[in-house]
């Protein structure tokens, strides 16, 4: 089928400001939007810049705004997103655009690093594995799925309004450790998240949950962190 991609372009070496370009390509309905973008890049205009690697929704490289919604281009099928044969594609919002669909991810990863995204356990490790019951393991299963794609954070109105807000992705990562029975730094993480740019900036709008390509219950996870802060109990 023929599909027209309307892409927001910006080349820092040439352009003063972003502009829209349209390209019509021939693709299969079941092709990914990523395939369609490649078709543009490979047969029409090689200057189109985007990040991608795995092409099946696992590496988190190709978060972009497709028809106004954050998605991974490799997980959106042409047939599902084309409206009257047109797909609009632009970079995710809230992070500086570097070139075309590529944004500067440094602020996003800085927020991630700020919440101590690693297991802390200061007891001498046992000879074998630390034990953890299947129930305790299940407690934080959902948030271990995060691929740091930024779809959630860059769909969040609170983050757009204030880039200092740690954002849902960092809270998801904090959740993954706070609720891990092996971890000992929950208090420290909760302290970080109780600061003005922590969880309380979240207004529970649910954009993040809708945007998450891994199906993580992002808003629920944020709610659980808020609850832990409110009650001082981690359950």
């Amino acid at each position: 089928m023929k599909v027209t991609l309307k892409i927001k372009r910006f080349n820092p070496e040439v352009d003063k400001k972003p502009h829209w370009e349209s390209y019509t390509v021939d693709v299969e309905p079941t092709d990914r939007v990523l395939d369609a973008l490649h078709e543009v890049k490979w047969s029409i205009d090689g200057t189109l810049a985007l990040r991608r690697s795995c092409a099946h929704g696992i590496c988190g490289s190709d978060a972009m705004r497709i028809n106004g919604r954050n998605m991974l281009a490799c997980k959106a099928l042409v047939k599902d997103v084309a409206k009257d044969g047109v797909i609009t594609v632009e970079p995710i919002l809230g992070l500086p655009v570097v070139k075309d669909l590529i944004v500067d991810m440094a602020p996003f990863f800085a927020h991630y690093r700020a919440i101590m995204p690693y297991l802390v356990n200061n007891d001498p490790p046992p000879e074998r594995e630390r034990l953890q019951s299947p129930e305790d393991r299940a407690r934080y299963d959902d948030t271990t799925k995060c691929i740091l794609c930024a779809c959630c954070t860059t769909s969040c109105p609170s983050f757009w309004a204030r880039g200092e807000y740690v954002g849902p992705a960092a809270i998801v990562q904090a959740h993954r450790f706070i609720f891990d029975s092996r971890d000992q730094a929950a208090e420290e993480r909760l302290r970080i998240l109780s600061e003005p740019d922590g969880v309380w900036r979240c207004r529970t709008v649910f954009n993040c949950t809708e945007a998450c390509p891994r199906g993580i219950q992002v808003t629920k996870a944020i709610g659980e962190v808020k609850e832990a802060l409110r009650t001082g109990v981690i359950r």
Binding site: L119, N121, E129, L131, S133, P134, R137, D141, D183
Partner: peptide, 19 residues
């Protein structure tokens, strides 16, 4: 594998809590 577990890798668990 034990080292990975100590680093925090969330392996699935047996009913008695082992990997």
């Amino acid at each position: 594998v034990i080292e990975l577990e100590h680093m925090g890798l969330p392996f699935d668990r047996t009913p008695d809590g082992r990997i």
